[in-house]
Design a protein around this nucleic acid. Sequence first.
DNA 1: TTGAAAGCGGTACCAA
DNA 2: TTGGTACCGCTTTCAA
Lengths: 360, 360
Amino acid sequence: MAERDGARPRVTLKQVSELAGVSQSTVSRILNRRHSAVPIAAATRERVLRVIEELDYRPHPLARGLRGGGTALLGLIVREVADPFFAAAIEAIADESRRHGYSLVLGHARSSAREALVLAEVLETRHCDGAILLGDLRDEPRLWAELEGSELAVVAVCQGGRAPGIPTVDCDNRVGTVMALQHLHGLGHRRIAFLDAGWLGDVEERRLAYHAFMAERGLPVLEGYHQRLPGNHPDAGLSAFRALLELSSPPSAVFCATDQVALGVLAAAARAGLRVPADVSVVGFDDIPMARFAVPGLTTVRQPLRRMARLAVERLLGLIRSGAAPRSGPARRERLRPSLVVRGSTAAPGGGAGGAASRG
Amino acid sequence: MAERDGARPRVTLKQVSELAGVSQSTVSRILNRRHSAVPIAAATRERVLRVIEELDYRPHPLARGLRGGGTALLGLIVREVADPFFAAAIEAIADESRRHGYSLVLGHARSSAREALVLAEVLETRHCDGAILLGDLRDEPRLWAELEGSELAVVAVCQGGRAPGIPTVDCDNRVGTVMALQHLHGLGHRRIAFLDAGWLGDVEERRLAYHAFMAERGLPVLEGYHQRLPGNHPDAGLSAFRALLELSSPPSAVFCATDQVALGVLAAAARAGLRVPADVSVVGFDDIPMARFAVPGLTTVRQPLRRMARLAVERLLGLIRSGAAPRSGPARRERLRPSLVVRGSTAAPGGGAGGAASRG
DNA sequence: TTGAAAGCGGTACCAA
DNA sequence: TTGGTACCGCTTTCAA
């Protein structure tokens, strides 16, 4: 009755060694067989392994980490955990990490000086063996400062802008945008509007690509055709589409920087009594799970998420294994090719009563 | 050139103490002032704090945890990270945890013996000070076995079924279901179908509540009115709704166990040329972010997620502070009251050409 | 082929 | 009020 009731006090390496009648070093060696420039007697190993089994012994990760063995923990810093695209990315990264024996520590990066600090603490220490930056975090100066000074292994995913000295994995937003616009253009659309999704991340590249495409083809970007949204949310897409309808010459197609925005546009169109795609075509970007189930199904550009996750994790583990991150000079940037997914939200213009312009 | 280039070798407690001319104990005490049954000279504290500042010293969490100080890490075990409802829950829990200085370690629990093991390792060790189980994990025997044997502080959220000896926070699914059905009933619906969403979690309580409600009011649950779905996904809702349309007497309203399923129903209705709510009313459950932007807006039952998260984290921290979890007997179960959110997907029956029955 | 022992960075108990 | 010091559980030389 002396000890806390039901407290199974944890099996230690020492106990294993004693019960097996060997030294701790021996047990440790058997556990980490990779370091075996040292041979071990088969009989000894046998015996030790049996004891380990019997006692259901598990190495203490903290102790291990403290001594320099790594923590099997990867930090994942995300701005918006609940965003459908990022949620899917988190899932993919978590799966991929686990395939390699790592768990994720979630750093939710909602802007705020104090929070960024906490986050940095999680990172900077040896708590995590490495970290993945998911999404655009350029507006987190403390984070970058912290990263700069540390030798932590870091990889960025969907970072949008370049991260100094940090290997990056993202999809080729320019190519994706061109795919979307070519699709619309091919259907006969000329009046194509663009809704961005705030200033963050990949959105910027898509915006640039839109303007480049329109200029190249000599398509007009009328006043108001490029709507600036306050953030990446259906709400924003909804309002922006309304603004589009107020224009003297509304577009016949809308290219949205993200699916989230596009879903808002679909909602707005429905509420305005417009039919998609008869009255107006809509294209998104990302191919979030919901895109398939929108009404109508959303034509969009798919990011190869699993492959991106795999690549990011592999790069990160590579960095970890190879010692530290030589955070200097331009780092490798991996750009995966997206693909166009055509669903029901796009069609040739004029299928309805003359496009969105016919409204009112 | 002896050491790795750019490796800032980490400031330790010892260095601080030496530079400040005090002992390690003193520094440690100043850092953890809560344990101060011990007074400390103001001058000393001053000096030490300055050195800490100067050296930008941060305690090593691993070392701290090893000695028993806790890791400031909470394990979060989730089945489906990318599910919109759970993603929102993760966000809420992450925010709440951070308000208390804790980070989350993500355990992605997709069923698989080996994975559950890895997960258990993360938990069982002192890696995490406690853990939150999010969603139904009853089919993870290894997890429960592990939990049983450990003294880890654990709280379950949206667990659906009871978890033996584990404090639980969820919403009152029965009340929520009744709200939804009363709403439909009040609008005049009598032929109300139910789509479950697999067998997991809260769904079961909603199913029971549906049958109870229908029986009480003497409403018929015709053959096929309760569709069993393979899982919680729009896809499943889509197929199930099609099956509903095949019935000789299709329902005038559909109550879905989750919004995910309801979104699938909305898509299916649109593809079948049915108008919602004129031809058929649809109600969901959860109020995921997308529900507002569905076409039409989805009437649904909202779970008070922030409050649930707050409660869960507080309970967990309480357990952690109070020592261990006395994993025995029935534990407290907190059921929060949901609320009905009426949007455009519900209306009195017969508004269209006679309900879904009129199809074909 | 194996063992002894010195840490890793802190915390906390016991003296002074 | 402070300092000394024995650990926490494991890895890793260095010897034997």
